[in-house]
Simulated scan of single mutants.
Amino acid sequence: MRLGISKALQIHAQLQVRMGVHSGPVSGITDVNDQSNVAGAGINMAQRVMDCGDAGHILASKRIAEDLEQYRQWRPYLHDLGDCEVKHGVKVHLFNLYTADLGNPAVPEKLKKATHPANRITGIRFFRKPARIAVGLLLAIAGIIGLLLFAHHASQKSIAAGGTAATPTTARRIAVLPFKPLVPENRDQVLELGMADTLIAKLSNSREIIVSSLNSVRKYGGLEQDASAAGRELQVNSVLEGNIQKVGDRIRVSARVINVSDGASLWAGTFDEKFTDVFAVQDAISQKVADALALRLSGEEKSRLTKRYTDNVDAYQLFLAGRYHHAKLIPTEIRTAIGFYKQAIDLDPNYALAYFGLAEANRCLAITSDVPSKDSLLACPRPRRPR
């Protein structure tokens, strides 16, 4: 694909483009504009590889070169450049990918300035692992991917025909959609998404039901979102939706569970309480949902369904604000989230979820920005005692 792009760019000589190729972990995210995007260590390393090149270069990491070396037709185009030092002193082993017509055969300026013997292109070093093993693995992976795609295609055809995806009766599925405001002019997206986030965590304690993750449902927070349509797209059996509004020191919540297949209401309830009783409201909704779905909960599961990680409402609100900004996975937003998590910990030094959020946010900084991993780990304080 990179060679194809390079060829297409030849007719636009004014466009100076360099490319970096690497394979590694990548996660699907929803960015600040509520658009689907990707982030992860794989992308960050590809950028580091790219930064070592000049205009026209197609640079590949050693991991990519080892994969391509298994194919005879790629071997003549891979040229070993040796190590290149990138940010934080990390060294990346690079290969220059070029043909007689495509790519840039010159040694990158960054490598010319380096004082190591790998400044010349010496040709790829062949690896000992037999090619037939790699080819066998690739064929096996291709077969698995093909089966998964076929199953997904069949499922999508079923949904398009108006039905829901078939699920075993022992693995019922539910989606908790972001709550909507009772009065659109008084939206509180932190509270709306936070209520869904908390209920997702509570309901996930049951082994009898599979609950869609927050990342998969957050895009269904529109005011005009149809719950049944969202349920069909998410391939679940039922959907929990609701409205929430905080006015002064009071909170009003209405919630209902609907059956995706026919839109029938399985349960509905309204709560009008002081905001300090928000935890009791969440406990009540969780129990009502479990009853409506006829979940057979063990004693331990019932206990976890109403477990509270803090009794401090102010700390809880700060934690929700941290989760809201953290989920956007943008460095500036993650740093904002870290501030909220720290404030929550200051109010409740035993708030385990806030410590977890702080640790995750610092870990994400190491992936999405230029903060070294060791610095991120040192930024996470230890809780006084487990709760």
Rank of each mutant, 00 (worst) to 15 (best):
V281D: 00
K307D: 02
V313Q: 02
R323S: 05
E301S: 06
H326C: 06
T310Y: 01
V289Q: 04
A290Y: 00
V313F: 01
I285N: 01
L305N: 04
Q287K: 15
D311N: 15
H325I: 01
H325Y: 13
A284W: 03
T276E: 05
Q317E: 13
D277I: 10
K307W: 07
A290M: 01
L297T: 08
Y309H: 11
R323V: 02
E301M: 05
K274N: 12
L305R: 04
E301K: 05
E333A: 12
D311W: 03
F319L: 11
R335N: 15
A284Q: 14
E301G: 03
I334Q: 04
E300A: 15
K307G: 03
E301W: 10
I330Q: 11
T332R: 08
K288A: 14
L318T: 08
D291R: 15
H325G: 00
A284C: 09
L318N: 10
D314Q: 12
R296G: 14
G299E: 15
E273F: 09
T310C: 02
K288W: 09
V313A: 11
L297F: 13
H326V: 02
Y324W: 10
L329Q: 14
R323H: 00
I330G: 02
Y316T: 06
Q317W: 06
I330K: 06
I330L: 09
T276K: 11
Q282M: 11
R308A: 07
L329F: 09
R323C: 01
D277G: 06
Y316K: 05
R304C: 08
F319V: 02
V289I: 07
K307T: 09
H325T: 03
V281A: 04
